Amino acid sequence: MRRRRINSRSGETIVEVMVSVLIFLMLMAVLQGAIMFCNSAQKKSRQIRQDTAEICEKLQSATAEGNGSANFDFYATSADESVIGDNVFSISAPKQKKTVSYGAAGETSSTIFYMYGGTAP
């Protein structure tokens, strides 16, 4: 009677399995980094939107300071702006300043907005 020999070369070796697991773990690490980056970008975007909404709200309710004026001069120029010609016209516009303070508890910032045109409220 003949003995059948089992082919010991079939299947995967432990080295192949370890390499596959290592590649899988490296891909998972990259994916986790991408997800963390997206989360932090989303939080920053949300904070910027909140700050912008607060600034806009306070800007609308802020009172204007000063009743100065600013002159805007318009000159004729060449297409590449290398030659500046004569003054074509000038406009005098009222200038006002509004200061807005905003921020979370403990951290406040202030921004100055200069507005031109219109009448002073």
Rank of each mutant, 00 (worst) to 15 (best):
A53C: 03
A41G: 00
T52K: 06
T63E: 15
S40Q: 12
A41Y: 02
S45M: 03
Y75L: 10
Q42D: 06
E57N: 11
A41L: 11
A62K: 07
A64W: 08
Q42N: 13
I84T: 12
S40D: 09
G68M: 04
I84Y: 02
G66V: 02
Q47H: 08
G66C: 02
S82C: 08
S82A: 15
V83Q: 12
K58S: 04
D51N: 12
K44G: 01
A41P: 01
R46T: 14
T77D: 01
Q47S: 13
S40A: 00
S82D: 09
D51P: 08
R46H: 07
E81Y: 03
A79G: 11
I84L: 05
S40E: 13
N67P: 01
S69E: 11
K58F: 08
K43S: 10
R46A: 14
E57I: 00
I55D: 05
R49E: 13
Q47T: 06
I84D: 01
G68T: 10
I55E: 03
E65F: 01
T52E: 15
G68W: 03
K43H: 02
A53L: 15
T77G: 01
V83D: 10
F72I: 08
I48Y: 06
T63S: 15
D51M: 11
S45T: 11
A76E: 14
E57K: 01
N71Y: 11
E54R: 07
E65T: 08
V83I: 09
G68K: 03
S45Q: 12
K44S: 10
S45P: 03
T77V: 15
A70K: 11
S40V: 06
S82L: 08
A79R: 06
A76P: 02
E54S: 14
T77K: 10
T63G: 13
S69C: 10
R49L: 14
A79P: 04
I48K: 00
A79I: 13
G66N: 08
E81H: 12
E57R: 07
I84M: 03
C56R: 13
A76Y: 09
Q42T: 05
Q60N: 11
N71P: 04
R46P: 04
D80A: 07
Q42Y: 02
D51G: 01
Y75H: 10
G66M: 02
A62I: 00
G85I: 08
Q60E: 04
K43F: 05
T52M: 12
V83T: 14
A79D: 15
S61F: 06
A53K: 15
N71A: 15
C56M: 14
A53S: 15
A62H: 02
V83F: 06
K58H: 11
S61M: 08
A62N: 07
Q42V: 11
T63W: 09
V83G: 00
K44F: 06
A53D: 15
I55T: 00
N67V: 10
A79N: 14
T63H: 10
A53N: 12
S82Y: 11
S61G: 02
A64F: 07
C56A: 15
T63R: 14
S40N: 07
S69N: 07
K58M: 00
F74S: 07
D73V: 07
E65R: 04
Q50D: 12
S69H: 09
S69V: 06
D80C: 07
T63D: 15
Q42A: 09
D86Y: 02
E54K: 03
F72S: 00
A62F: 01
S45H: 08
E81T: 09
I55K: 02
Q60P: 01
S45I: 04
